[in-house]
Simulated scan of single mutants.
Amino acid sequence: MKKILLASFDMEVGGVERSLIHLLNHFNLEDGALEVFLYRHAGDFLNMLPDHIALLPEVKEYTSFRKSIKTVMQEKQFRLAISRLKAKIVAEIIGKKNHYSEPGYVQMQRMWQYALNHLPSVEKTYDVAISYLWPHYFVAEKVTAKKKIAWIHTDFSTVETDEVADETMWNKFDHIMAVSEACKEAFLTKYPRLAQKVMVLENLQSPTFIRQQALMEDPELMMEDPRFKLVTVARLSHAKGIDMAVDAMAQLKEKGHTDIVWYIVGYGGDESALRDKISQHDLHDNIILLGKKTNPYPYMQAADLYVQPSRYEGKAVTVGEAQILGKPVLITAYPTSASQVSHGKDGWICELSAEGIAEGILTLKADSILREALSAACLQSDYSNVQELEKLYKVL
Protein backbone atom coordinates (compact mmCIF):
# COMPACT_ATOMS: atom_id res chain seq x y z
CA MET A 1 0.00 0.00 0.00
CA LYS A 2 1.36 3.42 -0.99
CA LYS A 3 1.81 5.92 1.83
CA ILE A 4 1.15 9.46 0.60
CA LEU A 5 1.58 12.75 2.44
CA LEU A 6 0.06 16.06 1.30
CA ALA A 7 1.15 19.28 3.03
CA SER A 8 -0.36 22.78 3.01
CA PHE A 9 -0.66 25.79 5.34
CA ASP A 10 -4.23 25.74 6.68
CA MET A 11 -7.84 25.70 5.48
CA GLU A 12 -8.69 29.39 5.54
CA VAL A 13 -11.15 30.55 2.87
CA GLY A 14 -9.33 30.96 -0.44
CA GLY A 15 -9.14 29.72 -4.01
CA VAL A 16 -6.18 27.41 -3.41
CA GLU A 17 -7.86 25.89 -0.36
CA ARG A 18 -11.11 25.44 -2.29
CA SER A 19 -9.23 23.65 -5.07
CA LEU A 20 -7.57 21.43 -2.45
CA ILE A 21 -10.97 20.44 -1.06
CA HIS A 22 -12.12 19.44 -4.56
CA LEU A 23 -8.90 17.46 -5.08
CA LEU A 24 -9.24 15.59 -1.78
CA ASN A 25 -12.93 14.86 -2.32
CA HIS A 26 -12.22 13.25 -5.68
CA PHE A 27 -8.98 11.53 -4.66
CA ASN A 28 -9.39 7.78 -5.00
CA LEU A 29 -6.36 5.54 -4.75
CA GLU A 30 -7.37 1.97 -3.98
CA ASP A 31 -3.86 0.80 -3.08
CA GLY A 32 -2.86 3.90 -1.12
CA ALA A 33 -3.44 5.83 2.09
CA LEU A 34 -3.44 9.63 2.05
CA GLU A 35 -2.41 11.71 5.08
CA VAL A 36 -2.69 15.50 5.23
CA PHE A 37 -0.32 17.68 7.24
CA LEU A 38 -1.50 21.25 7.83
CA TYR A 39 0.89 23.69 9.46
CA ARG A 40 -2.08 25.03 11.36
CA HIS A 41 -5.45 23.40 12.07
CA ALA A 42 -7.47 26.51 11.31
CA GLY A 43 -9.89 27.90 8.73
CA ASP A 44 -13.55 27.68 7.80
CA PHE A 45 -12.81 24.90 5.30
CA LEU A 46 -11.27 22.62 7.94
CA ASN A 47 -14.54 20.77 8.55
CA MET A 48 -14.85 20.15 4.79
CA LEU A 49 -11.88 17.76 4.73
CA PRO A 50 -13.24 14.38 3.56
CA ASP A 51 -13.42 11.41 5.91
CA HIS A 52 -11.21 9.17 3.80
CA ILE A 53 -8.06 11.18 4.51
CA ALA A 54 -6.18 11.27 7.81
CA LEU A 55 -5.38 14.69 9.25
CA LEU A 56 -2.07 14.49 11.11
CA PRO A 57 -1.62 16.22 14.47
CA GLU A 58 -0.61 19.87 14.52
CA VAL A 59 3.09 20.58 15.27
CA LYS A 60 3.63 23.70 17.36
CA GLU A 61 6.67 24.99 15.47
CA TYR A 62 4.86 25.02 12.13
CA THR A 63 1.86 26.91 13.47
CA SER A 64 4.12 29.94 13.97
CA PHE A 65 4.10 30.87 10.27
CA ARG A 66 0.53 32.18 10.41
CA LYS A 67 1.00 34.04 13.71
CA SER A 68 2.41 37.48 14.45
CA ILE A 69 6.04 37.74 15.54
CA LYS A 70 4.80 39.09 18.89
CA THR A 71 2.65 35.99 19.45
CA VAL A 72 5.53 33.69 18.54
CA MET A 73 7.69 35.49 21.11
CA GLN A 74 4.97 35.17 23.76
CA GLU A 75 4.87 31.44 23.06
CA LYS A 76 8.63 31.39 23.78
CA GLN A 77 9.55 30.17 20.31
CA PHE A 78 12.41 32.66 20.31
CA ARG A 79 14.51 31.18 17.50
CA LEU A 80 11.54 31.12 15.15
CA ALA A 81 10.57 34.67 16.15
CA ILE A 82 14.10 35.90 15.43
CA SER A 83 14.03 34.09 12.07
CA ARG A 84 10.76 35.83 11.22
CA LEU A 85 12.08 39.24 12.27
CA LYS A 86 15.31 38.77 10.31
CA ALA A 87 13.33 37.74 7.21
CA LYS A 88 11.12 40.83 7.50
CA ILE A 89 14.10 43.20 7.75
CA VAL A 90 16.06 41.54 4.94
CA ALA A 91 13.00 41.47 2.63
CA GLU A 92 12.36 45.17 3.21
CA ILE A 93 15.98 45.98 2.35
CA ILE A 94 15.93 43.81 -0.79
CA GLY A 95 12.52 45.17 -1.80
CA LYS A 96 13.66 48.81 -1.55
CA LYS A 97 16.94 48.11 -3.31
CA ASN A 98 15.25 46.35 -6.24
CA HIS A 99 12.04 48.44 -6.21
CA TYR A 100 9.81 45.40 -5.68
CA SER A 101 6.09 46.16 -5.69
CA GLU A 102 5.43 43.22 -3.36
CA PRO A 103 8.42 42.05 -1.26
CA GLY A 104 6.17 39.65 0.65
CA TYR A 105 7.31 36.70 -1.46
CA VAL A 106 10.95 37.36 -0.61
CA GLN A 107 10.00 37.67 3.06
CA MET A 108 8.18 34.34 3.04
CA GLN A 109 11.04 32.65 1.24
CA ARG A 110 13.65 34.02 3.67
CA MET A 111 11.44 33.16 6.63
CA TRP A 112 11.55 29.48 5.70
CA GLN A 113 15.26 29.54 4.91
CA TYR A 114 16.17 31.10 8.27
CA ALA A 115 13.75 28.90 10.23
CA LEU A 116 14.64 25.51 8.71
CA ASN A 117 17.26 24.59 11.30
CA HIS A 118 14.72 25.19 14.08
CA LEU A 119 11.93 23.06 12.61
CA PRO A 120 11.43 19.33 13.33
CA SER A 121 11.56 16.74 10.56
CA VAL A 122 8.84 14.17 9.95
CA GLU A 123 9.90 10.81 11.38
CA LYS A 124 7.78 8.68 9.07
CA THR A 125 8.95 7.77 5.55
CA TYR A 126 6.48 8.08 2.65
CA ASP A 127 6.28 6.70 -0.85
CA VAL A 128 5.07 10.08 -2.14
CA ALA A 129 5.08 13.55 -0.53
CA ILE A 130 3.05 16.38 -2.08
CA SER A 131 3.55 20.07 -1.28
CA TYR A 132 0.42 21.94 -2.32
CA LEU A 133 1.38 25.54 -1.60
CA TRP A 134 4.61 27.51 -2.15
CA PRO A 135 7.09 27.89 -0.52
CA HIS A 136 7.74 24.14 -0.56
CA TYR A 137 10.62 23.97 1.92
CA PHE A 138 8.79 21.69 4.38
CA VAL A 139 8.41 18.79 1.96
CA ALA A 140 11.74 19.56 0.29
CA GLU A 141 13.78 19.55 3.49
CA LYS A 142 11.81 17.98 6.34
CA VAL A 143 10.04 15.00 4.75
CA THR A 144 11.62 11.74 3.59
CA ALA A 145 9.87 10.27 0.54
CA LYS A 146 10.76 8.20 -2.51
CA LYS A 147 9.01 10.72 -4.74
CA LYS A 148 8.17 14.39 -4.18
CA ILE A 149 5.63 16.58 -6.01
CA ALA A 150 5.09 20.35 -5.78
CA TRP A 151 2.23 22.53 -7.03
CA ILE A 152 2.34 25.89 -8.85
CA HIS A 153 -0.75 28.09 -8.37
CA THR A 154 0.60 31.47 -9.46
CA ASP A 155 2.31 33.25 -12.35
CA PHE A 156 5.95 33.03 -11.31
CA SER A 157 7.09 35.41 -14.04
CA THR A 158 5.51 38.22 -12.00
CA VAL A 159 6.79 37.13 -8.58
CA GLU A 160 10.04 38.47 -7.13
CA THR A 161 12.01 35.73 -5.37
CA ASP A 162 15.60 34.65 -4.76
CA GLU A 163 15.78 32.53 -7.92
CA VAL A 164 19.00 30.69 -7.04
CA ALA A 165 17.69 29.57 -3.64
CA ASP A 166 14.28 28.77 -5.09
CA GLU A 167 15.71 26.63 -7.89
CA THR A 168 17.71 24.63 -5.32
CA MET A 169 14.44 23.97 -3.51
CA TRP A 170 12.56 23.07 -6.72
CA ASN A 171 15.27 20.55 -7.61
CA LYS A 172 14.36 18.51 -4.53
CA PHE A 173 11.11 17.57 -6.33
CA ASP A 174 10.59 14.90 -8.98
CA HIS A 175 7.47 16.52 -10.47
CA ILE A 176 6.04 20.05 -10.50
CA MET A 177 2.32 20.47 -11.24
CA ALA A 178 1.19 23.75 -12.85
CA VAL A 179 -2.53 24.60 -12.77
CA SER A 180 -2.57 25.79 -16.40
CA GLU A 181 -0.44 25.69 -19.54
CA ALA A 182 0.16 29.44 -19.29
CA CYS A 183 1.16 29.00 -15.64
CA LYS A 184 3.68 26.35 -16.71
CA GLU A 185 5.12 28.55 -19.47
CA ALA A 186 5.43 31.52 -17.11
CA PHE A 187 7.26 29.37 -14.58
CA LEU A 188 9.69 28.11 -17.21
CA THR A 189 10.59 31.65 -18.30
CA LYS A 190 12.11 31.97 -14.85
CA TYR A 191 13.32 28.39 -14.33
CA PRO A 192 13.97 26.93 -17.83
CA ARG A 193 16.28 24.22 -16.46
CA LEU A 194 13.31 22.62 -14.69
CA ALA A 195 11.37 21.95 -17.91
CA GLN A 196 11.55 18.14 -17.61
CA LYS A 197 9.90 18.23 -14.20
CA VAL A 198 6.87 20.41 -15.04
CA MET A 199 3.47 19.20 -16.22
CA VAL A 200 -0.04 20.68 -16.24
CA LEU A 201 -2.77 19.49 -13.87
CA GLU A 202 -5.70 21.89 -13.76
CA ASN A 203 -7.59 22.70 -10.58
CA LEU A 204 -10.48 20.30 -10.20
CA GLN A 205 -13.95 21.78 -10.54
CA SER A 206 -17.24 20.25 -9.50
CA PRO A 207 -20.10 21.94 -11.41
CA THR A 208 -22.77 19.97 -9.54
CA PHE A 209 -21.41 21.04 -6.13
CA ILE A 210 -21.03 24.69 -7.17
CA ARG A 211 -24.56 24.91 -8.60
CA GLN A 212 -26.01 23.26 -5.50
CA GLN A 213 -24.14 25.65 -3.20
CA ALA A 214 -25.38 28.64 -5.22
CA LEU A 215 -28.94 27.74 -4.18
CA MET A 216 -28.12 27.35 -0.47
CA GLU A 217 -28.50 31.04 0.46
CA ASP A 218 -30.49 34.03 -0.69
CA PRO A 219 -28.37 37.22 -0.55
CA GLU A 220 -31.32 39.58 0.01
CA LEU A 221 -29.10 42.68 0.09
CA MET A 222 -28.04 42.02 -3.48
CA MET A 223 -31.34 40.68 -4.77
CA GLU A 224 -33.15 43.83 -3.69
CA ASP A 225 -30.50 46.15 -5.16
CA PRO A 226 -31.84 47.48 -8.50
CA ARG A 227 -28.43 48.66 -9.71
CA PHE A 228 -26.11 46.86 -12.15
CA LYS A 229 -24.34 44.41 -9.84
CA LEU A 230 -20.64 43.54 -10.12
CA VAL A 231 -19.21 40.75 -7.97
CA THR A 232 -15.62 39.83 -7.18
CA VAL A 233 -14.53 36.96 -4.94
CA ALA A 234 -10.91 37.41 -3.98
CA ARG A 235 -8.32 37.87 -1.29
CA LEU A 236 -7.92 41.53 -0.39
CA SER A 237 -4.33 41.78 -1.59
CA HIS A 238 -2.10 43.55 -4.10
CA ALA A 239 -2.12 40.52 -6.41
CA LYS A 240 -5.92 40.54 -6.76
CA GLY A 241 -6.03 44.21 -7.80
CA ILE A 242 -8.91 45.28 -5.55
CA ASP A 243 -7.29 48.72 -5.25
CA MET A 244 -7.62 49.07 -9.04
CA ALA A 245 -11.28 48.09 -8.69
CA VAL A 246 -11.79 51.01 -6.29
CA ASP A 247 -10.07 53.40 -8.72
CA ALA A 248 -12.20 52.06 -11.59
CA MET A 249 -15.39 52.61 -9.61
CA ALA A 250 -14.25 56.13 -8.75
CA GLN A 251 -13.84 56.84 -12.46
CA LEU A 252 -17.28 55.42 -13.23
CA LYS A 253 -18.90 57.53 -10.53
CA GLU A 254 -17.09 60.65 -11.74
CA LYS A 255 -18.52 60.06 -15.22
CA GLY A 256 -22.03 59.88 -13.78
CA HIS A 257 -22.52 56.11 -13.72
CA THR A 258 -24.15 55.93 -10.29
CA ASP A 259 -26.34 52.93 -11.16
CA ILE A 260 -23.46 50.45 -10.65
CA VAL A 261 -22.60 48.67 -7.38
CA TRP A 262 -19.63 46.41 -6.72
CA TYR A 263 -19.93 43.62 -4.14
CA ILE A 264 -16.58 42.18 -3.03
CA VAL A 265 -16.45 38.87 -1.17
CA GLY A 266 -13.19 38.19 0.65
CA TYR A 267 -10.77 39.26 3.34
CA GLY A 268 -7.05 39.93 3.63
CA GLY A 269 -4.25 42.17 4.78
CA ASP A 270 -5.20 45.09 2.52
CA GLU A 271 -8.68 45.54 3.99
CA SER A 272 -7.83 48.60 6.11
CA ALA A 273 -6.06 50.37 3.21
CA LEU A 274 -8.97 49.56 0.89
CA ARG A 275 -11.52 50.95 3.33
CA ASP A 276 -9.47 54.14 3.53
CA LYS A 277 -9.37 54.33 -0.26
CA ILE A 278 -13.14 53.77 -0.49
CA SER A 279 -13.65 56.61 2.02
CA GLN A 280 -11.33 58.96 0.12
CA HIS A 281 -13.42 58.49 -3.02
CA ASP A 282 -16.73 58.54 -1.11
CA LEU A 283 -17.69 55.13 -2.49
CA HIS A 284 -19.34 53.60 0.58
CA ASP A 285 -22.59 53.16 -1.34
CA ASN A 286 -20.91 51.88 -4.51
CA ILE A 287 -18.42 49.32 -3.16
CA ILE A 288 -19.69 46.86 -0.56
CA LEU A 289 -17.07 44.76 1.21
CA LEU A 290 -18.95 41.65 2.28
CA GLY A 291 -16.03 40.01 4.10
CA LYS A 292 -15.27 36.31 4.36
CA LYS A 293 -17.90 33.90 3.02
CA THR A 294 -17.43 30.14 3.11
CA ASN A 295 -20.05 29.89 0.38
CA PRO A 296 -19.51 32.68 -2.18
CA TYR A 297 -21.64 31.08 -4.88
CA PRO A 298 -25.03 32.71 -4.08
CA TYR A 299 -23.30 36.10 -4.44
CA MET A 300 -21.82 35.07 -7.79
CA GLN A 301 -25.25 33.82 -8.85
CA ALA A 302 -26.82 37.20 -8.04
CA ALA A 303 -24.29 39.14 -10.13
CA ASP A 304 -24.97 40.80 -13.45
CA LEU A 305 -21.25 40.63 -14.18
CA TYR A 306 -18.40 38.79 -12.46
CA VAL A 307 -15.13 40.78 -12.44
CA GLN A 308 -11.59 39.56 -11.70
CA PRO A 309 -9.32 42.65 -11.53
CA SER A 310 -6.11 40.70 -10.75
CA ARG A 311 -2.56 41.79 -11.49
CA TYR A 312 -1.50 38.17 -11.92
CA GLU A 313 -2.94 34.67 -11.56
CA GLY A 314 -1.95 31.08 -12.21
CA LYS A 315 -5.52 30.18 -13.06
CA ALA A 316 -8.20 31.93 -11.04
CA VAL A 317 -10.47 29.33 -9.43
CA THR A 318 -13.26 31.87 -8.99
CA VAL A 319 -13.41 32.78 -12.69
CA GLY A 320 -14.07 29.15 -13.60
CA GLU A 321 -16.70 28.93 -10.87
CA ALA A 322 -18.49 32.04 -12.16
CA GLN A 323 -18.48 30.52 -15.67
CA ILE A 324 -19.98 27.29 -14.29
CA LEU A 325 -22.83 29.44 -12.93
CA GLY A 326 -23.31 30.96 -16.38
CA LYS A 327 -22.13 34.44 -15.46
CA PRO A 328 -20.56 36.81 -17.99
CA VAL A 329 -17.01 37.39 -16.72
CA LEU A 330 -14.63 40.31 -17.13
CA ILE A 331 -10.96 39.72 -16.34
CA THR A 332 -7.88 41.89 -16.68
CA ALA A 333 -5.19 41.03 -19.21
CA TYR A 334 -2.81 39.48 -16.69
CA PRO A 335 -0.15 37.33 -18.41
CA THR A 336 -2.05 34.04 -18.11
CA SER A 337 -5.54 35.45 -18.82
CA ALA A 338 -5.87 33.95 -22.31
CA SER A 339 -5.52 30.45 -20.84
CA GLN A 340 -8.70 31.00 -18.83
CA VAL A 341 -11.00 33.09 -21.01
CA SER A 342 -11.49 33.17 -24.77
CA HIS A 343 -12.05 36.89 -25.37
CA GLY A 344 -15.48 37.62 -26.77
CA LYS A 345 -16.58 33.98 -26.59
CA ASP A 346 -16.89 32.88 -22.96
CA GLY A 347 -15.63 36.04 -21.29
CA TRP A 348 -14.14 39.48 -21.81
CA ILE A 349 -10.51 40.54 -21.27
CA CYS A 350 -9.78 44.20 -20.56
CA GLU A 351 -6.62 46.23 -20.19
CA LEU A 352 -4.82 45.67 -16.88
CA SER A 353 -5.49 49.09 -15.38
CA ALA A 354 -8.23 50.97 -13.56
CA GLU A 355 -9.11 52.67 -16.84
CA GLY A 356 -9.28 49.31 -18.63
CA ILE A 357 -11.50 47.80 -15.93
CA ALA A 358 -13.89 50.79 -16.04
CA GLU A 359 -14.05 50.62 -19.84
CA GLY A 360 -14.70 46.85 -19.76
CA ILE A 361 -17.52 47.28 -17.25
CA LEU A 362 -19.19 49.95 -19.36
CA THR A 363 -18.84 47.87 -22.53
CA LEU A 364 -20.56 44.86 -20.99
CA LYS A 365 -23.14 46.89 -19.07
CA ALA A 366 -24.24 48.64 -22.26
CA ASP A 367 -24.51 45.43 -24.31
CA SER A 368 -26.98 42.97 -22.82
CA ILE A 369 -26.86 40.84 -25.99
CA LEU A 370 -23.10 40.39 -25.56
CA ARG A 371 -23.54 39.48 -21.89
CA GLU A 372 -26.21 36.91 -22.78
CA ALA A 373 -23.95 35.42 -25.47
CA LEU A 374 -21.06 35.08 -23.01
CA SER A 375 -23.40 33.47 -20.46
CA ALA A 376 -24.81 31.06 -23.03
CA ALA A 377 -21.32 29.96 -24.06
CA CYS A 378 -20.46 29.24 -20.43
CA LEU A 379 -23.66 27.27 -19.81
CA GLN A 380 -23.01 25.18 -22.93
CA SER A 381 -19.47 24.32 -21.82
CA ASP A 382 -18.54 21.28 -19.76
CA TYR A 383 -16.32 22.47 -16.91
CA SER A 384 -16.11 19.13 -15.11
CA ASN A 385 -12.52 17.93 -15.26
CA VAL A 386 -12.17 15.07 -12.79
CA GLN A 387 -10.25 13.25 -15.53
CA GLU A 388 -7.31 15.55 -14.69
CA LEU A 389 -6.70 13.32 -11.68
CA GLU A 390 -5.55 10.55 -14.01
CA LYS A 391 -2.35 12.55 -14.56
CA LEU A 392 -1.68 12.54 -10.83
CA TYR A 393 -2.45 8.83 -10.51
CA LYS A 394 0.09 8.05 -13.24
CA VAL A 395 2.73 10.09 -11.46
CA LEU A 396 1.92 8.42 -8.13
Rank of each mutant, 00 (worst) to 15 (best):
D282T: 14
I260M: 03
L374K: 07
H281R: 10
G266H: 08
D270L: 12
I357C: 01
R371M: 07
I260S: 00
K240E: 02
K315G: 07
Y267H: 13
K293V: 07
Y267C: 13
L274D: 09
H343F: 09
L364V: 03
V329L: 06
C350Y: 10
G266L: 07
A333W: 07
S342L: 13
H284P: 02
S375W: 01
G269L: 15
H284M: 12
E359N: 13
T318I: 09
A354L: 01
T332A: 10
A248V: 01
Y267F: 15
G269T: 14
L374A: 08
L283K: 02
G266R: 04
P309Q: 11
H284F: 13
K253D: 04
G266S: 11
E254G: 02
V319H: 01
K277R: 15
V341A: 03
I324D: 03
D304V: 10
Q308K: 10
Q340L: 15
A366C: 08
V307C: 06
A333Q: 15
L290M: 15
L325D: 10
T318N: 14
I324P: 02
Q323T: 08
P328H: 05
K240M: 04
K277I: 01
S337A: 15
G256D: 05
V265A: 10
S310Q: 06
A333G: 11
E355P: 05
A373L: 15
G347T: 02
L374N: 02
L283W: 06
E271C: 13
M244R: 13
S368C: 09
S337R: 05
L290H: 06
E254V: 07
S272T: 14
I242T: 02
A376K: 13
S368L: 11
G291E: 13
G256L: 01
G268I: 09
G314N: 09
L364F: 06
G314V: 08
P328D: 11
V246G: 04
K253F: 04
A322L: 07
K293Y: 09
W262F: 11
Y299Q: 09
D285P: 07
W262V: 02
G326D: 00
G241K: 06
C350Q: 10
E321I: 07
T332N: 09
Y306K: 00
R275H: 10
D247W: 04
D247T: 11
A366W: 03
T332K: 01
L374Y: 08
E351S: 15
A376V: 15
D367C: 07
A303Q: 00
I331C: 07
L289N: 12
Y267W: 15
I260W: 04
Q323C: 09
G314P: 03
E359W: 04
P309M: 10
A248W: 02
K365A: 05
A333T: 08
I264M: 02
A358M: 06
L374T: 06
L379Y: 12
L379P: 08
S368Q: 11
R371I: 07
K365T: 09
A302N: 04
I242H: 05
Q323E: 11
N295Q: 15
T294R: 14
E372T: 14
T336G: 02
P335N: 12
A354R: 00
G241D: 00
L305D: 06
D259G: 01
G268A: 09
S375L: 11
A303G: 03
L362D: 05
P296E: 09
A358Y: 00
D346C: 01
N286G: 08
A358E: 04
A373K: 15
Q340P: 00
Y297P: 01
S279D: 14
E313A: 04
R371P: 06
D367P: 00
L325N: 06
L362T: 03
